[in-house]
Nucleic acid binder design. Structure first.
Length: 244
DNA sequence: ATGCTTGTTGTACC
DNA sequence: AGGTACAACAAGCA
């Protein structure tokens, strides 16, 4: 489920419940469920991998983490613990295996919305500034950093680095300004390709590097390695992706 | 079937 | 104070 573009799809699927009143809230999330009862769902906002169900004075923050899932108007009961259910008149939303928190409006106001690669407010100049201030950071960690590229996950990371022909362990400070600009442009660009392909259920088919064993460009064997401080798996071609 | 993973948070320990 | 490092969480897949 959980990289930024998938969260956009989740928002779309939940959208039909906006404007409706919560009749009942339950589930094993450690929140004060009754507080949501009777409130109108004003809007749904997303920030990277996070989803905010916004009510008058409070918002529910949902983060699907690695294995989270959701459903709208579920027909059959899934075989796992229900984390949160919000029941509306004739409809409902259900969340599983995710992090659920109540936050206030100040919390929303403090978010740097310009860091979200999927957002209209995405600010590439700001991203550039953040990257320039961290010359010692590996590019694989930078892409996964949610303060810089909110919404980018491991799949997007691997595909972006393959596209711009940069080895994951490259240091930001060693990369020419032009490459940094490519990195920023492609992080957004690929995220929208991801969204399009996910919508068509053809995402996996379009992977060039992620989980692949052979380089589609040169036919050499791809390297699979845990990289960066995050120790997340990277797939890359030693021949086609340059180490800066 | 055991190990791995599209992710983050908390806590212990320097 | 700051960072680092790992455990914990959990479901679906190969």
């Amino acid at each position: 489920m959980p990289e930024g573009p998938s969260i956009i799809l989740m928002k779309e699927n939940l959208q039909k419940l906006v404007g409706k009143k919560v009749i009942e809230a339950h589930g094993n999330a450690k929140i004060d469920h009754p507080i949501l009862k009777g409130k109108i769902l004003k809007e749904i906002r997303t920030f990277g991998k996070q989803t905010y169900l916004v009510f008058d004075d409070i918002a529910v923050r949902i983060h699907l983490l690695m294995f989270g899932s959701y459903s709208v108007d579920e027909q059959t009961k899934p075989d796992r613990q229900l984390r949160l259910a919000l029941i509306f008149k004739g409809s409902g939303m259900y969340f599983y295996t995710c992090s659920v928190k109540l936050v206030d409006s100040e919390f929303l106001a403090a978010i740097d919305w310009e860091a979200d690669v999927m957002s209209d407010e995405w600010n590439p100049k700001k991203a550039e500034k953040k990257l320039k201030s961290k010359p010692e950071m590996m590019v694989c960690d930078a892409l996964m950093n949610q303060d810089i590229f909110s919404g980018v996950g491991n799949i997007i990371k691997n595909e972006v680095l393959f596209r711009i022909e940069v080895q994951p362990e490259s240091l930001l400070g060693n990369m020419p300004a032009k490459k940094i600009k490519e990195l920023i442009a492609e992080a957004r660009n690929y995220s929208f390709d991801f969204l399009k392909w996910k919508r068509e259920f053809t995402l996996k088919k379009h992977w060039l590097a992620h989980t692949k064993s052979v380089c589609p460009k040169c036919g050499e064997k791809l390297i699979k390695k845990q990289t960066g401080l995050g120790k997340r798996r990277s797939f890359y071609c030693e021949k086609d992706q340059k180490l800066y």
